[in-house]
Design a protein around this nucleic acid. Structure first.
Lengths: 118, 118
DNA sequence: ATACTATATTCGATTATTAGAATATAACAA
DNA sequence: TTGTTATATTCTAATAATCGAATATAGTAT
Protein backbone atom coordinates (compact mmCIF):
# COMPACT_ATOMS: atom_id res chain seq x y z
CA UNK A 1 0.00 0.00 0.00
CA UNK A 2 2.73 2.43 0.95
CA UNK A 3 4.59 1.21 -2.10
CA UNK A 4 1.53 1.68 -4.33
CA UNK A 5 1.15 5.20 -3.07
CA UNK A 6 4.74 5.95 -3.89
CA UNK A 7 4.36 4.54 -7.33
CA UNK A 8 1.32 6.70 -7.85
CA UNK A 9 3.06 9.84 -6.65
CA UNK A 10 6.14 9.09 -8.71
CA UNK A 11 3.92 8.57 -11.73
CA UNK A 12 2.28 11.94 -11.28
CA UNK A 13 5.60 13.67 -10.74
CA UNK A 14 7.04 12.01 -13.76
CA UNK A 15 4.09 13.15 -15.83
CA UNK A 16 4.85 16.68 -14.68
CA UNK A 17 8.55 16.18 -15.29
CA UNK A 18 8.81 17.69 -18.73
CA UNK A 19 8.91 21.41 -19.54
CA UNK A 20 6.26 21.08 -22.24
CA UNK A 21 3.87 19.32 -19.90
CA UNK A 22 4.52 21.88 -17.18
CA UNK A 23 3.60 24.54 -19.72
CA UNK A 24 0.45 22.66 -20.68
CA UNK A 25 -0.65 22.20 -17.09
CA UNK A 26 0.01 25.85 -16.34
CA UNK A 27 -2.13 26.89 -19.28
CA UNK A 28 -4.90 24.58 -18.21
CA UNK A 29 -4.77 25.77 -14.62
CA UNK A 30 -5.96 29.12 -15.96
CA UNK A 31 -8.74 27.89 -18.25
CA UNK A 32 -9.77 25.03 -20.46
CA UNK A 33 -8.30 24.97 -23.94
CA UNK A 34 -8.54 23.12 -27.20
CA UNK A 35 -5.58 21.16 -28.50
CA UNK A 36 -4.89 23.68 -31.22
CA UNK A 37 -5.17 26.45 -28.64
CA UNK A 38 -2.55 24.68 -26.55
CA UNK A 39 -0.32 24.23 -29.58
CA UNK A 40 -0.39 27.96 -30.18
CA UNK A 41 0.02 28.87 -26.54
CA UNK A 42 2.90 26.52 -25.89
CA UNK A 43 4.45 26.66 -29.33
CA UNK A 44 4.55 22.98 -30.24
CA UNK A 45 3.40 20.76 -33.08
CA UNK A 46 0.03 19.05 -33.02
CA UNK A 47 1.40 15.52 -32.92
CA UNK A 48 3.74 16.38 -30.12
CA UNK A 49 0.98 18.03 -28.13
CA UNK A 50 -1.14 14.95 -28.55
CA UNK A 51 1.61 12.76 -27.20
CA UNK A 52 2.14 14.94 -24.14
CA UNK A 53 -1.60 15.16 -23.57
CA UNK A 54 -1.78 11.37 -23.71
CA UNK A 55 0.76 11.21 -20.89
CA UNK A 56 -1.35 13.54 -18.77
CA UNK A 57 -4.53 11.65 -19.66
CA UNK A 58 -3.02 8.31 -18.71
CA UNK A 59 -2.39 9.63 -15.22
CA UNK A 60 -5.90 11.10 -15.08
CA UNK A 61 -4.49 14.57 -14.59
CA UNK A 62 -6.69 16.11 -17.27
CA UNK A 63 -10.23 15.68 -18.56
CA UNK A 64 -11.62 16.32 -21.99
CA UNK A 65 -14.79 17.63 -23.46
CA UNK A 66 -15.76 17.30 -27.08
CA UNK A 67 -17.32 20.18 -28.95
CA UNK A 68 -17.83 19.71 -32.65
CA UNK A 69 -14.59 18.36 -33.96
CA UNK A 70 -12.50 20.03 -31.29
CA UNK A 71 -11.48 18.60 -27.97
CA UNK A 72 -11.14 20.84 -24.97
CA UNK A 73 -8.83 19.91 -22.14
CA UNK A 74 -9.01 21.00 -18.53
CA UNK A 75 -7.33 20.02 -15.27
CA UNK A 76 -9.01 17.20 -13.46
CA UNK A 77 -8.57 18.85 -10.09
CA UNK A 78 -7.44 22.33 -9.05
CA UNK A 79 -5.29 20.60 -6.43
CA UNK A 80 -2.89 20.00 -9.27
CA UNK A 81 -2.66 23.74 -9.82
CA UNK A 82 -1.88 24.05 -6.11
CA UNK A 83 0.97 21.60 -6.45
CA UNK A 84 2.35 23.81 -9.21
CA UNK A 85 1.81 26.82 -6.97
CA UNK A 86 3.88 25.21 -4.21
CA UNK A 87 6.54 24.60 -6.78
CA UNK A 88 6.47 28.26 -7.74
CA UNK A 89 7.04 29.20 -4.08
CA UNK A 90 9.88 26.74 -4.01
CA UNK A 91 11.33 28.30 -7.13
CA UNK A 92 11.35 31.78 -5.66
CA UNK A 93 12.69 30.57 -2.33
CA UNK A 94 15.60 29.03 -4.18
CA UNK A 95 16.03 31.36 -7.10
CA UNK A 96 19.80 31.26 -6.82
CA UNK A 97 20.19 27.50 -6.84
CA UNK A 98 17.50 27.30 -9.50
CA UNK A 99 19.60 29.47 -11.77
CA UNK A 100 22.65 27.43 -10.85
CA UNK A 101 20.87 24.22 -11.83
CA UNK A 102 19.91 25.65 -15.19
CA UNK A 103 23.41 26.98 -15.84
CA UNK A 104 24.84 23.57 -14.97
CA UNK A 105 22.46 21.87 -17.35
CA UNK A 106 23.34 24.22 -20.16
CA UNK A 107 27.02 23.63 -19.51
CA UNK A 108 26.55 19.88 -19.72
CA UNK A 109 24.52 20.34 -22.89
CA UNK A 110 27.37 22.28 -24.48
CA UNK A 111 29.72 19.41 -23.76
CA UNK A 112 27.43 17.11 -25.75
CA UNK A 113 26.88 19.10 -28.92
CA UNK A 114 25.08 16.22 -30.64
CA UNK A 115 22.29 16.72 -28.11
CA UNK A 116 22.18 20.46 -28.63
CA UNK A 117 19.01 20.45 -30.73
CA UNK A 118 16.91 19.94 -27.63
CA UNK B 1 12.49 33.49 -18.04
CA UNK B 2 9.11 31.76 -18.14
CA UNK B 3 10.81 29.01 -20.04
CA UNK B 4 13.63 28.79 -17.49
CA UNK B 5 11.13 28.50 -14.72
CA UNK B 6 9.36 25.68 -16.48
CA UNK B 7 12.61 23.89 -17.02
CA UNK B 8 13.39 24.27 -13.36
CA UNK B 9 9.99 22.98 -12.27
CA UNK B 10 10.15 20.10 -14.70
CA UNK B 11 13.59 19.24 -13.38
CA UNK B 12 12.34 19.11 -9.82
CA UNK B 13 9.32 17.04 -10.78
CA UNK B 14 11.49 14.70 -12.74
CA UNK B 15 13.77 14.28 -9.76
CA UNK B 16 10.72 13.30 -7.73
CA UNK B 17 9.47 11.06 -10.51
CA UNK B 18 10.80 7.75 -9.28
CA UNK B 19 9.29 5.63 -6.52
CA UNK B 20 12.63 5.18 -4.80
CA UNK B 21 13.26 8.90 -4.71
CA UNK B 22 9.75 9.56 -3.44
CA UNK B 23 10.49 7.09 -0.66
CA UNK B 24 13.78 8.82 0.12
CA UNK B 25 12.22 12.27 0.22
CA UNK B 26 9.42 11.02 2.45
CA UNK B 27 11.94 9.54 4.87
CA UNK B 28 13.92 12.76 4.90
CA UNK B 29 10.83 14.88 5.42
CA UNK B 30 10.55 13.18 8.81
CA UNK B 31 14.16 13.45 9.92
CA UNK B 32 17.70 13.53 8.64
CA UNK B 33 19.26 10.15 7.89
CA UNK B 34 22.56 8.59 6.94
CA UNK B 35 22.91 6.83 3.63
CA UNK B 36 22.99 3.43 5.25
CA UNK B 37 19.93 4.39 7.29
CA UNK B 38 18.15 5.26 4.06
CA UNK B 39 19.23 2.00 2.47
CA UNK B 40 17.67 0.07 5.34
CA UNK B 41 14.56 2.21 5.47
CA UNK B 42 13.88 2.10 1.76
CA UNK B 43 15.28 -1.36 1.10
CA UNK B 44 17.80 -0.62 -1.63
CA UNK B 45 21.47 -1.23 -2.30
CA UNK B 46 24.09 1.31 -1.35
CA UNK B 47 25.22 2.05 -4.90
CA UNK B 48 21.67 2.56 -6.02
CA UNK B 49 20.92 4.86 -3.11
CA UNK B 50 23.98 6.91 -3.97
CA UNK B 51 22.80 7.34 -7.54
CA UNK B 52 19.34 8.43 -6.49
CA UNK B 53 20.80 10.78 -3.90
CA UNK B 54 23.00 12.27 -6.58
CA UNK B 55 19.89 13.07 -8.62
CA UNK B 56 18.35 14.84 -5.63
CA UNK B 57 21.61 16.64 -4.87
CA UNK B 58 21.97 17.88 -8.43
CA UNK B 59 18.61 19.60 -8.14
CA UNK B 60 19.58 20.99 -4.73
CA UNK B 61 16.66 19.21 -3.10
CA UNK B 62 18.77 17.78 -0.29
CA UNK B 63 21.70 18.89 1.84
CA UNK B 64 24.36 16.83 3.51
CA UNK B 65 26.30 16.91 6.72
CA UNK B 66 29.36 14.83 7.39
CA UNK B 67 29.85 13.16 10.74
CA UNK B 68 32.84 10.87 11.03
CA UNK B 69 32.69 8.66 8.00
CA UNK B 70 28.95 8.90 7.63
CA UNK B 71 27.00 11.39 5.59
CA UNK B 72 23.65 12.56 6.80
CA UNK B 73 21.06 13.80 4.34
CA UNK B 74 18.19 16.15 4.98
CA UNK B 75 15.66 18.05 2.89
CA UNK B 76 16.86 21.43 1.76
CA UNK B 77 13.52 23.04 2.46
CA UNK B 78 10.37 21.81 4.20
CA UNK B 79 8.45 23.31 1.27
CA UNK B 80 9.40 20.16 -0.55
CA UNK B 81 7.64 18.13 2.12
CA UNK B 82 4.61 20.35 1.54
CA UNK B 83 4.67 19.58 -2.16
CA UNK B 84 4.60 15.89 -1.23
CA UNK B 85 1.80 16.63 1.21
CA UNK B 86 -0.27 18.23 -1.58
CA UNK B 87 0.37 15.12 -3.61
CA UNK B 88 -0.91 13.00 -0.75
CA UNK B 89 -4.13 15.04 -0.72
CA UNK B 90 -4.35 14.55 -4.43
CA UNK B 91 -3.89 10.83 -3.97
CA UNK B 92 -6.73 10.54 -1.52
CA UNK B 93 -8.98 12.78 -3.57
CA UNK B 94 -8.46 10.42 -6.50
CA UNK B 95 -7.99 7.10 -4.81
CA UNK B 96 -10.09 5.30 -7.38
CA UNK B 97 -8.30 6.58 -10.45
CA UNK B 98 -4.99 6.13 -8.63
CA UNK B 99 -5.74 2.46 -8.21
CA UNK B 100 -6.84 2.30 -11.80
CA UNK B 101 -3.56 3.83 -12.96
CA UNK B 102 -1.58 1.29 -10.99
CA UNK B 103 -3.67 -1.61 -12.26
CA UNK B 104 -3.18 -0.39 -15.81
CA UNK B 105 0.55 -0.18 -15.34
CA UNK B 106 0.73 -3.68 -13.94
CA UNK B 107 -1.30 -4.94 -16.86
CA UNK B 108 1.09 -3.36 -19.34
CA UNK B 109 4.02 -4.81 -17.40
CA UNK B 110 2.54 -8.30 -17.72
CA UNK B 111 2.38 -7.93 -21.46
CA UNK B 112 6.13 -7.34 -21.54
CA UNK B 113 7.42 -10.29 -19.52
CA UNK B 114 11.07 -9.46 -20.26
CA UNK B 115 10.59 -6.40 -18.07
CA UNK B 116 9.06 -8.40 -15.23
CA UNK B 117 12.14 -8.22 -12.99
CA UNK B 118 11.33 -4.66 -12.04
C1' DA C 1 -19.76 10.54 -52.26
C1' DT C 2 -15.18 13.83 -51.65
C1' DA C 3 -12.67 17.26 -49.16
C1' DC C 4 -11.22 19.59 -45.07
C1' DT C 5 -10.12 20.28 -40.24
C1' DA C 6 -8.96 18.66 -35.58
C1' DT C 7 -7.03 15.25 -32.95
C1' DA C 8 -4.87 10.68 -32.00
C1' DT C 9 -1.85 6.84 -32.90
C1' DT C 10 1.99 4.28 -34.74
C1' DC C 11 6.74 3.87 -36.25
C1' DG C 12 11.74 4.63 -36.21
C1' DA C 13 15.81 6.77 -34.65
C1' DT C 14 17.87 9.06 -30.89
C1' DT C 15 18.68 10.12 -26.19
C1' DA C 16 18.01 9.47 -21.23
C1' DT C 17 17.37 6.72 -17.10
C1' DT C 18 17.89 2.74 -14.57
C1' DA C 19 19.96 -1.31 -11.72
C1' DG C 20 23.79 -3.80 -10.62
C1' DA C 21 28.70 -4.82 -10.66
C1' DA C 22 33.11 -3.16 -10.09
C1' DT C 23 36.02 0.31 -8.56
C1' DA C 24 37.39 4.58 -6.11
C1' DT C 25 37.71 7.61 -2.17
C1' DA C 26 37.76 9.00 2.49
C1' DA C 27 37.54 8.37 7.52
C1' DC C 28 38.74 5.63 11.04
C1' DA C 29 40.81 1.58 13.79
C1' DA C 30 44.42 -1.74 14.94
C1' DT D 1 51.42 0.48 7.59
C1' DT D 2 46.97 -2.69 6.71
C1' DG D 3 42.17 -3.42 7.21
C1' DT D 4 37.39 -1.96 7.62
C1' DT D 5 33.36 0.76 7.03
C1' DA D 6 30.66 4.35 4.62
C1' DT D 7 29.80 6.64 0.55
C1' DA D 8 30.51 7.97 -4.36
C1' DT D 9 31.58 7.15 -9.14
C1' DT D 10 32.13 4.70 -13.44
C1' DC D 11 30.73 1.25 -16.68
C1' DT D 12 27.50 -1.71 -19.07
C1' DA D 13 23.25 -3.64 -20.61
C1' DA D 14 18.45 -3.09 -20.46
C1' DT D 15 14.46 -0.19 -20.46
C1' DA D 16 11.92 3.94 -21.17
C1' DA D 17 10.99 8.61 -23.07
C1' DT D 18 11.43 11.73 -26.74
C1' DC D 19 10.72 13.88 -31.34
C1' DG D 20 9.28 14.08 -36.06
C1' DA D 21 7.09 11.91 -39.83
C1' DA D 22 3.52 9.29 -41.52
C1' DT D 23 -0.90 7.49 -40.95
C1' DA D 24 -5.53 6.92 -38.87
C1' DT D 25 -9.93 8.50 -37.13
C1' DA D 26 -13.83 11.42 -36.51
C1' DG D 27 -16.54 15.43 -37.31
C1' DT D 28 -18.16 18.72 -40.49
C1' DA D 29 -18.95 20.85 -45.00
C1' DT D 30 -19.88 20.72 -49.98
Amino acid sequence: MLESMRQFKAGVFQALGHPTRVAIVECLSRCEMSVSGLCDAVGIEQANASQHLAVLRNKYLVETRKEGNQIFYRLRDPLLGEVLEKMREFFFAHMNEAMEVLREEKKVARKRPQAAKR
